[in-house]
C-alpha cells in the first residue's frame, strides 16, 4: 500500500502532494534536483501527462524516475493525447515499476498548448477513465481479458470547484466516486466562497470521509503569474482584488507568499479536505517555509539510492 493510500484510508493525517516539474532536455538531471527539494516533504508527487497540452518527458518515464529517486509518484493520466489502449498500456507500464497511485483527468484541450493543430483524442472522458482504472484494479482490461495478478492501485480524480456550473461539480464528484475514485485533487481556486460551497456540497452529498479532497495551492512570486492564470489558463478565474493585493504591495513576493499561506489555511479548514496539492512556480525557499508554517516536518527515509548516490546517476 502506498504512503498516500495508507495515510488517507487508515489515518487522519493531513497529506501533502505536489506537482513534479515538467522534464525536457537533460531530464534526469533536472529530476534529481527537483527530487532533492521534494524528498521528505510529500506523500505523493504527480507525474504529469503533457501539462497544458505541451509535449514533455512522458508521465510514465517521470514516474519511474521518481521511484528511482525516492519519491512516491502519482501517475497522472489524461484523455487528450491517447486512446483507451494506450492509456491502459501506460497504467500497466507504470504499475510494472511499482507505481501505485493514479489520477485520471480529462485534460486541457490541444488548443491550450503550442501544437494546436494536433488531433485531439478524448476517446474516454475523465469519469470513464476512472472506471477503466477500477476495472484494471479488479484484474481485467476493458475487454475483459484477465490481468493476473491485478496491479495494486489507489485511484483518484480531479475536479474544478471554481468553474461553472458550480452545483453540478458536486454531482460530478459523486459520479467519479461511484466510478472508483478515492481521492480528488482540485484545481487551484482563488474564490474562497466557491471552495467553501463545493466542500459543503460534497459533505451534504454524503461523500465526506469517502473521497479525500485535496485542493491545489500555487506558490507564485508576484502578480504576473496570477494575471497569466487568470487570462490564459482555462477554467481559472483570479479575482481582481487578489491580483491587486500582490501587485500594489510594497513587497510583492512577500505578499504573494502570505496570500498562498492564507489560501492554504483556508482550504485546510474546509470539511472533507484531507490535504493540499502544491504547485511550486517559485523555486525558492518559500516551499520549505510554507510546509513549516503549515506544521509539516520533513521526513527523509534512507533509500538504497541515498546510500549509493551513484546508483541512479544517468
Amino acid at each position: 500500500m502506498s504512503t498516500l493510500e495508507h495515510k488517507l484510508t487508515k489515518t487522519n493525517e493531513t497529506v501533502f502532494t505536489a506537482e513534479f516539474h515538467t522534464l525536457d532536455g537533460n531530464g534526469f538531471e533536472k529530476a534529481k534536483k527537483v527530487a532533492d527539494r521534494f524528498r521528505g516533504w510529500f506523500d505523493g508527487v504527480n507525474a504529469t501527462d503533457n501539462t497544458a497540452a505541451h509535449a514533455h518527458v512522458s508521465n510514465v518515464a517521470s514516474a519511474i524516475a521518481m521511484k528511482q529517486l525516492g519519491l512516491e509518484p502519482i501517475l497522472q493520466v489524461v484523455c487528450r493525447d491517447k486512446n483507451r489502449l494506450a492509456q491502459q498500456a501506460d497504467i500497466m507500464g507504470a504499475s510494472m515499476f511499482g507505481v501505485e497511485n493514479f489520477v485520471a483527468l480529462t485534460g486541457d484541450d490541444v488548443t491550450a498548448g503550442d501544437e494546436s493543430e494536433a488531433r485531439r483524442v478524448f476517446d474516454l472522458d475523465g469519469p470513464q477513465l476512472v472506471r477503466l482504472m477500477s476495472t484494471i484494479k479488479r484484474g481485467e482490461y476493458m475487454s475483459g481479458r484477465k490481468i493476473d495478478p491485478a496491479p495494486h492501485m489507489f485511484i483518484g480524480a480531479v475536479e474544478n470547484p471554481g468553474a461553472p456550473p458550480f452545483e453540478y461539480r458536486v454531482q460530478r464528484v459523486a459520479k467519479k466516486y461511484a466510478a472508483g475514485a478515492k481521492f480528488l485533487q482540485l484545481q487551484i481556486c482563488y474564490h474562497q466562497d466557491r471552495l467553501e460551497k463545493f466542500c459543503a456540497g460534497v459533505r451534504d452529498a454524503g461523500l465526506a470521509g469517502k473521497i479525500a479532497i485535496i485542493p491545489t495551492i500555487v506558490l507564485v512570486k508576484g502578480a504576473r503569474p496570477l494575471n497569466f492564470m487568470h487570462n490564459s489558463v482555462p477554467g481559472i478565474d483570479v479575482p481582481a482584488d487578489q491580483i491587486a493585493r500582490v501587485e500594489k504591495a510594497a513587497d510583492p513576493a512577500e505578499e504573494a507568499y502570505l496570500q498562498t499561506l492564507e489560501f492554504s489555511q483556508h482550504a485546510l479548514a474546509q470539511p472533507g479536505v484531507r490535504g493540499l496539492h502544491i504547485t511550486d512556480f517559485r523555486n525558492d525557499d518559500t516551499l520549505e517555509r510554507l510546509m513549516t508554517d503549515l506544521g509539516r516536518v520533513r521526513r527523509i527515509t534512507t533509500t538504497n539510492e541515498d546510500k549509493d548516490d551513484h546508483a541512479y546517476s544517468a
Binding site: 484523455c79 487528450r80 483527468l105 480529462t106 485534460g107 486541457d108 484541450d109 491550450a112 485531439r120 478524448f122 472522458d125 475523465g126 469519469p127 470513464q128 480531479v158 475536479e159 474544478n160 468553474a163 461553472p164 456550473p165 453540478y168 454531482q171 460530478r172 459520479k175 484545481q187 482555462p234 477554467g235
Partner: peptide, 12 residues
Amino acid sequence: KTLRNGPCGGVR
C-alpha cells in the same frame, strides 16, 4: 472534447 459525462474543468 466529445465528453459524455459532464463538463471539463475549463468552462469559462
